[in-house]
Simulated assay, not measured.
Amino acid sequence: MDTQAELQERDPSSAPDTGPGEGSRSSRVRDRLTGPLSWRLSWRGTLGVGAVCAVFVLLFSTFVVQPFLIPSGSMERTLRVGDRVLVNKLAYRFGGEPRRGDVVVFDGTGSFVREGAAQNPVTALLRGAAASLGLAEPAETDFVKRVVGVGGDRVVCCDARGRIEVNGRPLDEDYLFPGDAPSEVPFDIVVPEGALWMMGDHRSRSRDSRDHLGEPGGGVVPVERVIGRVDWFGWPLGRVGSLPGTSAFDSVPAPGPSHG
């Protein structure tokens, strides 16, 4: 008669709930998973993923495609103040050379600007990181211009109709800012090998190769200083797409002795 009662007492499945002082094991595990330690681990994981993403974006910007904030109107109407363009850093990396008509970003140190005083390395690092993401204006040594002459070219201003000539062929520059003359400054230069003659599209507002003719760099930019080619618009949304090309240089002959 007492056997059934004894079995029930020994059966764990029929054991009563533990008392309020002990609590259940499952609730204790759940408290651990949802407690302060879990919250800290969750935030650490989020920060870790964010750091990895930031490093990836910076590496991609450094070696592949870099956003570039247009700081001035020297390239209007092609590029406007506040535009964010995407600079293709692979365009010239595998043996390619800048061509006439390309819009490029370059480091003007030694050509457009003189070597400056050293700046705070931390400030320079933070500014460089922000600029590489298109969140801040580029360094004062970085410029965006159009390639008008390459090594060996003779670039002259101007012919009887006020047009710039390259290797004796006048240019019909369809990209110029409306109302601008090709140049108000006369010049006649043979571009050294390994260098580029740079000009802005808004000629009346652009300080470019013309303005540095009498300086140590002679106004030309070494090809090795080119950071990349502007290939796409990234912002504003209404202008997203490829940078328009130009046929202005299609009929320009290769440089030769007769053009020197």
Rank of each mutant, 00 (worst) to 15 (best):
E76D: 09
R32M: 12
S27V: 05
V49C: 12
E140I: 02
F177G: 01
M1I: 03
V57M: 13
D153N: 07
P255E: 10
L90Q: 09
F177C: 07
G23N: 01
E9K: 14
D159K: 02
H202A: 10
Q119Y: 03
F233W: 00
G116K: 11
G134L: 13
V105D: 11
R30P: 00
S24F: 03
V81A: 00
G152F: 03
E193N: 09
A118T: 14
F56T: 15
T46K: 02
L135R: 06
R146H: 08
L90H: 01
R163T: 00
G151A: 11
Y175W: 13
D180C: 05
D153I: 13
G48M: 07
G245Y: 08
R163E: 03
R154Q: 10
G134W: 03
G168N: 13
V104Q: 09
A5S: 15
S38W: 02
D17M: 03
D83C: 01
C53N: 11
H259C: 02
V191K: 12
S209H: 14
W43E: 12
V55M: 13
S72R: 01
E224C: 01
D172C: 00
L243A: 03
P216F: 13
D208Q: 09
M198L: 15
N167Y: 01
A129P: 09
G95V: 04
D188F: 00
L90M: 11
H212L: 14
